[in-house]
């Protein structure tokens, strides 16, 4: 699972951005999260098929949204008859997590000469899988090759997502209910453990636990902004506990 070692930092195999791109693309074979991503997108393809979206729609959502939970929320809210505004709010709330992820990932790729526009594609590719893998792979990649490497990794992961979307869409009619349920269960499991794995501070664990525990309570309010309410309350408590433990 942890196979494919990358070449040493000073190796000539890192010469040129094209080689770094290729190493990034090949790195998708060195992570079990590729498999998780593949199965997740089979689930999203199948969900899109069952809710009568076109294959082009499903593929565009994978390529342009590139965030599993947002796509599941978008498809399930639209299919249940929500308005565009209601769906957009639900999607944008689920996507707030991408903001700190991009803030955390981009300094790992910057050099003093890096321009912001060179990082636009990196920001687009940033989602839970890339975020976890950047912490694992980037220390083994020379700094001036990291943008090309992440472009390769992102393209590789997106290709996996697109293939899986097609497979899921075409298979949907033949999936047994148990298998379809198991595929949809993968997203919450993978997201919980990926986030927990990348958590270092007490505040991160506490935010995760409180967010899980408070959502069912917030859902009782039925405000349409349940996740935002439980997230703000849970996150703020976690932050305060962290500050309090740190001392004045």
């Amino acid at each position: 699972m942890r196979g494919m070692p990358l070449p040493p930092l000073e190796s000539p195999k890192w010469h040129g951005p094209l080689r770094a791109f290729a190493w990034g693309m090949r790195s998708v074979t060195a992570t079990v999260l590729s498999l998780v991503l593949f199965v997740t997108y089979i689930g999203i393809g199948a969900l899109a098929h069952d809710t009568h979206f076109s294959l082009a729609w499903a593929l565009m959502s994978t390529a342009l949204v590139w965030a599993g939970p947002a796509q599941i929320i978008l498809i399930s809210t639209l299919a249940s008859g929500a308005t565009i505004v209601q769906s957009a709010i639900a999607v944008t709330v689920s996507a707030i997590r991408l903001f700190p992820m991009v803030v955390a990932v981009t300094p790992m790729l910057r050099t003093p000469r890096t321009k912001r526009r060179q990082l636009v594609l990196v920001a687009h590719f940033t989602a839970v899988t890339l975020w976890v893998e950047c912490y694992r792979f980037l220390p083994q990649v020379p700094r001036e090759r990291r943008i090309a490497f992440v472009h390769g990794l992102g393209c590789g992961l997106t290709s996996i997502g697109l293939c899986a979307t097609i497979i899921g869409y075409e298979l949907a009619a033949n999936l047994s209910q148990s298998l379809a349920a198991a595929i949809l269960l993968l997203t919450p499991l993978a997201f919980l453990f990926s986030t927990a794995r990348n958590s270092r501070e007490l505040a991160d664990f506490l935010a995760l636990a409180l967010g899980l525990a408070l959502y069912p309570l917030a859902a009782l309010l039925n405000s349409g902004l349940d996740i935002l309410v439980s997230g703000l309350v849970g996150g703020t408590i976690a932050f305060c506990v962290h500050k309090w433990r740190e001392g004045p």
């Binding site: 939970p69 997590r97 986030t195 935010a207 967010g211 899980l212 959502y215 935002l228 849970g234 996150g235």
Partner: peptide, 13 residues
């Protein structure tokens, strides 16, 4: 970050 993590947990829930 804490709020974003709690929101992600809410999405999972």
């Amino acid at each position: 970050k804490a709020v974003a993590t709690a929101i992600l947990a809410g999405v999972i829930a």
